[in-house]
Design a protein around this nucleic acid. Sequence first.
DNA 1: TTTATTTACGATATCGTTTTCGTTACATTT
DNA 2: AAATGTAACGAAAACGATATCGTAAATAAA
Lengths: 339, 339
Amino acid sequence: MPKVNLKDLAKSLNISVSTVSKALRDSYEISNETKKKVIAKAQQMGYNPNPYAGFLRNNKSKTIAILIPELTNNYFIQAISGAETIAQENNYHILIYATNNNIEKESSILKHLNNGRVDGILMSVSSNTSQYNHIEELIRNGIPIVFFDRICHEIETAKITTNDFASGFMATEHLLQTGSKKIAYLSISEHLSIDHKRKQGYLEALNKHDIQLEKELMIQCSDDEKTNIDKIKKLLTSKKRPDGIFASVEKLALTTYHLCKELKIRIPQDLKIISFSNLRTADLLNPSLTTITQPAYEIGKEAASILFKYLAKRKSLIPNENIVINSKLTIRDSTNPDL
Amino acid sequence: MPKVNLKDLAKSLNISVSTVSKALRDSYEISNETKKKVIAKAQQMGYNPNPYAGFLRNNKSKTIAILIPELTNNYFIQAISGAETIAQENNYHILIYATNNNIEKESSILKHLNNGRVDGILMSVSSNTSQYNHIEELIRNGIPIVFFDRICHEIETAKITTNDFASGFMATEHLLQTGSKKIAYLSISEHLSIDHKRKQGYLEALNKHDIQLEKELMIQCSDDEKTNIDKIKKLLTSKKRPDGIFASVEKLALTTYHLCKELKIRIPQDLKIISFSNLRTADLLNPSLTTITQPAYEIGKEAASILFKYLAKRKSLIPNENIVINSKLTIRDSTNPDL
DNA sequence: TTTATTTACGATATCGTTTTCGTTACATTT
DNA sequence: AAATGTAACGAAAACGATATCGTAAATAAA
């Protein structure tokens, strides 16, 4: 039953609890001899400090939370992985919460966190988040939040994103340059800033090349896979079928792939596809998928680094800052004009 | 600065702290009137209990840890997702740790957890784990551990796995039935029970069909992608090249896909491939990949459920139990004999 | 009326740390 | 010799909640 605490240590050394505590924290008040003895005894007795006692005393938990819309998503997992790496380096612990794109769940989780359980939060907002009260309250209570990817412009803090507008522009231009004339945009949520920016890039590229926007080509998808399938199928079987598709998120590109298989639409001959994606098997798909890939791991690292920087400073108010880490276009067969 | 605690509530209500505490916990000692008042006031003042004070007092943290070898792995993510669902239902929180297949890191993380920070642990052991002292100590200290997938037979507790032996047997037989004569097995780690069982299934299938094992066909891979590439490339370019491959994990199948592309080996005509995998794009690969898929989400749910069951009982010693959730074979083109 | 019993609440110890503030004993300065 | 300084330690008060007592008043039983 080696549940040894400071008191036990003190007793077995015949010194006071405070001396033991200070010795272990390497205080200048304690002589080197005593420190050696204490450390040796602690080692021997297998002392392991109770974290919660310290948290209570110091109002610091060495723990952060990561809130993401969904776990089963390559982008978010890579971002978490990056954040986790930095957390381990800083001896921080990570609590994970999936909001499942449910604003009530997001709000409820944040309420639970609004009590000192975590020192800070990394989050990507739920896609239908349109009220920010529950987020602002955390910050008012001194719990800093750093946003990544699905950010919240309305809140003053650090935000890590990729160059969504430029990437959307680039993706669309790539489709144009590889021969597409009628390009559709698959949107995942009208409430998301990233989606909006990618769409703006799409529109700007069309504009630059003097292409009239056809509204039927902008498909508003959602988290409901079934209605997505219906909408995209309708798009692909309409007489005004596009010859190029720009998917704002990976999931929609994969749905399109499935539908093309079903509808015998050839990629890239009949339809070219480009998508934001962190799929590691993009080059093994049939055909391989041209992607805009976000440096998700780096984004996670950066977000965590910024948070820890301010936590170390004991500053809970993080000034507004927009950090952009560029995505990379990887051209593959799904937009190959020579196939 | 709404950092209101029980004392503040008590003061503003002119009653004692203990009464407030009991009222909020719906104690029978408190009258309904008082309860109403307290609850209303708590609501009004935005009271949010400090979790760590309670944890300290009760020696319970409503938190569990999940330790996995790596985050960027479809199987583990789905398992985490399942566990997270159950955790949210039970109002438990989840700390995530990646061991990166590093036994020292695993050991160090477990040491950090050996102090009441978590009530219990869900874990998949690091692939080179061969000593179990660091794990046994946790259990001795009353922190229950449930294993999933990469389990530790030597420790008495609940273990959730899939039917690895039968699945290995089935995979190998499927290759035989689709025409493969020389079947290679790609192993990920000789220290892993799951690998060992899958391999036994492979050997048993060969035996059943009176096929002599050729030792050069059992490739011992690792976490080092480079040496894996070398070994598999050597296998694929040898004169005794196999015409079927059974990959024990997804990663090795993907490496093989890449190498086949590079070496112009046609799948499935020249080489058939089957693999354990939770890839969601298995059917979109070129060619689509025949998989043995574990119900990872369910495995995660099951593991968490068992842990919570014992935590609710305040029983920290979980009796030994082997729970098997069967995998499913999905036949696709990578083993299609008619292509 | 006296003695139990119940109801509703308060005082206080406790969980295990950290930290402030004393308090020695001894060395150093005037 | 008196005053000051310093090094090394201990006592005790936090941190915020919970649970064990105790106790007053009100009710019931004798």
